[in-house]
Structure formats: structure tokens, C-alpha cells
Amino acid sequence: MRTWQRLGYKDREKVMDNVGTHENWKSCFSEVAPGLLLFARQWVQSAADAEDVVQEAFVKFWRRNHNIENRALLYAAVRSIAFDFIRRDKRRARREAIVFADAEPAIEPQFEWQDETQSTLAAAVGSLPHDQREVLVLKIWNELTFNEIASALGISQNTAASRYRYALANLKKSLQPQ
């Protein structure tokens, strides 16, 4: 059973450096996979679909031998492949909607919470506007810099930083007792 642990920034650089140099990709992947999956879940509904997206992105990234300077490219690849998936999935969804018209959609949790507070926090994150949530996910759980976030999302660094602040402000507001 693999366990997930938070990495320090320097450790993370080492991990990503290893990804770039083809060394020990398994340990690299086990470290970055949870964050990548969470990022992919911003666009695709199910965990299984997110895993498909992450698999495709990571394998492409590894084969092209990108280095740490292109770290944002891995996340950009996840995003791009997720968009492609959505386009394909829309067509599939239309077909499946006819078959499963009465079935309840299965919403799989994006986080593993331990108490009620964390559950509330996870729900609050889920209710954030999409553009704010993706920046928050990259910053908090993937530990990208604003520069890298900007590069991965194709926005300016200032926009990335302001979206992050808006996300935190919105979270704080929604978590305040009514």
C-alpha cells in the first residue's frame, strides 16, 4: 500500500528532477500522482476518468524527458488531455444519458477527510468557482509557484495570484458561521 506524504519544496524539486531524468519514475509518480489526480478531477467527474487523464499525461511527459524547468508542462499536459477527454466525454455522456436516465450519479470524493471540519472544508473547496479552484489546487496540493501556475494555465502571474487570493477569501467567507 502506497502512502501519500507531503513533500517540502526542495524534495519536490528532486522528485520532479527525477521525472525529467527518467530515474525511478515509480517513486516520482507515487509522489505526484495524488496532486495530479486532484488537478484532473477539476474537469472530469469520476476518479477513474481522472486516472486515465493522469496516466496519459504522465506517460507523455516521461517519454519526452522534460526537466524541472518544464514542471508546469506536466500540469499543462494534464489540463490539455482533460479538455480532450471532456470533448469525447460529452459525446459519450449523450449516449449514456439515454441508457442511465434514472440512475443516480456517483460523486466520488476528491479528498480524504478525517473529521467534520475537514469534510466542510472539502465541500467549500468544491463549491469554489472553477478558475479559482484550479489555482488553489495547484498552489496548495501541488505546491507550484505562481509563475509555474501561470505557465500551466496560460494566464499571467498576477492573475494566478489574484485568483488564489479570491479563492481563499471565498473559502473563509463560506466557512464563517452564519
Binding site: 501519500w4 515509480k26 495524488p34 489526480l37 486532484l38 493522469v54 477527510w113 472544508l121 473547496v125
Partner: peptide, 23 residues
């Protein structure tokens, strides 16, 4: 404080099958 709380929240784990598929 909010950032610290967020960092305590752990993303869902990938399925073990994913590693095999990537491999």
C-alpha cells in the same frame, strides 16, 4: 491559518491499478 488547514486535507489516493497501468 486557512492555508494550513487546507494543507492538512489530503487528496484522494490513486488506485493501485493506476501504477500498474502506467507501468
Amino acid at each position: 491559518e486557512l492555508e494550513n488547514e487546507l494543507k492538512k486535507l489530503r487528496p484522494a489516493q490513486p488506485s493501485p491499478v493506476l501504477f500498474e497501468r502506467v507501468e
